[in-house]
Amino acid sequence: MTPASLYALVGVGLIVLGLYALSVHAHLLRKLLAFNVTGSGVFLVLVGLARRTPAAAADPVPQAMVLTGIVVAVAATALAVVLMLRVQATCGRAALNDDLGTLEPLQPPPTPPAGGPAASAGSAEGAPPALTGTTAHAP
């Protein structure tokens, strides 16, 4: 086993470790850290194997790719942290909700308009009366 493949194997280990933590932990910060561990694993595979050149210098192209990848990961992590803080502020905890739509309806259900002020905002003149008043469906 060459040093290059050793680095790559450590990278593979980090990937799997990160994937495990990502699936097991519920807290979003832990998920983010796990994602970054997986990301580091991928970068290590990418840059570790660059050492296999016959010449003394490592292949510069994977190094450039990893630099690009790191900046992308930084940007993504920054966005994710801010999004996590917003989720915590809005939902009360930094975790994903499994139940969809139970937190709040998309829009509050319309209360029957008293005197129909909302209905008067309608676009079409001469609309069917069923749409413009509360009494239309009265038995």
């Binding site: 493949s5 790559a8 194997l9 194997l49 050149t53 510069p60 192209v61």
Partner: peptide, 13 residues
């Protein structure tokens, strides 16, 4: 990863 050849030129040259 282990199946890769131990020496590869890459794009360095």
């Amino acid at each position: 990863v282990l199946s890769l050849p131990p020496v590869a030129p890459g794009l360095g040259a």
